[in-house]
Computed example of a mutant assay.
Amino acid sequence: MNAAETDRIHDSFARQSMMETFGATLIDVSAGLVRISAPILPGSRQQQGFGHAGLTFSIGDSAAGYAALTMLPLTSEVVTAEIKINLLAPARGERLIATGRVVKPGKRLCVVTSEVHAEADGKSTLIAILQGTMVPVPL
């Protein structure tokens, strides 16, 4: 990826107020792969003290969407057409890491996946898998 392509992802991510609310950050951007980190803050926990599934879904969806965007021309954006999540384990720990990947790029549809891991005491646990479809849209 060139600087303009990488800057596009960072600039778009910076405009997401929800990611800012969650304290999420981009930690890796490369062709077909994006990683997002978010701390499990007191305001993003569910009733039992685990990270809320909404946090897990949000960063997983964003990581997958931005992974799709890395494969598209600078004149495109993406929107999620559909995405499914399997929650595998509680979000226990200090932070979540979502890794979005492109399964099949396309001009009309991009099939994507995302894995979300929870980090606790130096250990990483897979807590969710997402799969979905992103639709390229012109700017």
Score class of each variant (00 low, 15 high):
102 V>T: 02
18 M>L: 13
28 D>E: 15
79 V>T: 15
46 Q>L: 01
53 A>L: 09
105 P>F: 03
43 G>Y: 06
77 E>T: 15
77 E>P: 01
133 T>K: 07
71 M>I: 04
121 D>C: 11
113 T>I: 15
26 L>V: 01
106 G>T: 03
120 A>C: 09
123 K>H: 10
135 V>T: 14
7 D>G: 03
123 K>M: 09
103 V>H: 10
127 I>C: 04
121 D>M: 12
50 F>R: 06
50 F>I: 01
24 A>D: 06
126 L>I: 05
27 I>A: 07
75 T>M: 03
97 I>L: 12
104 K>H: 14
95 R>I: 00
52 H>V: 10
2 N>C: 01
109 L>C: 05
119 E>N: 08
119 E>P: 05
111 V>Y: 15
29 V>R: 05
14 A>W: 07
107 K>F: 06
112 V>Y: 02
27 I>S: 13
1 M>A: 08
103 V>Q: 14
128 A>H: 01
12 S>N: 13
115 E>V: 11
119 E>V: 10
51 G>P: 03
103 V>M: 15
103 V>F: 12
2 N>R: 01
2 N>E: 05
128 A>C: 10
27 I>T: 12
17 S>L: 11
84 K>L: 11
104 K>W: 05
136 P>C: 07
30 S>T: 15
137 V>S: 09
79 V>S: 11
122 G>M: 08
10 H>N: 13
12 S>L: 14
73 P>Q: 05
2 N>W: 03
86 N>S: 15
120 A>D: 11
80 T>Y: 10
76 S>V: 00
112 V>W: 02
85 I>Q: 14
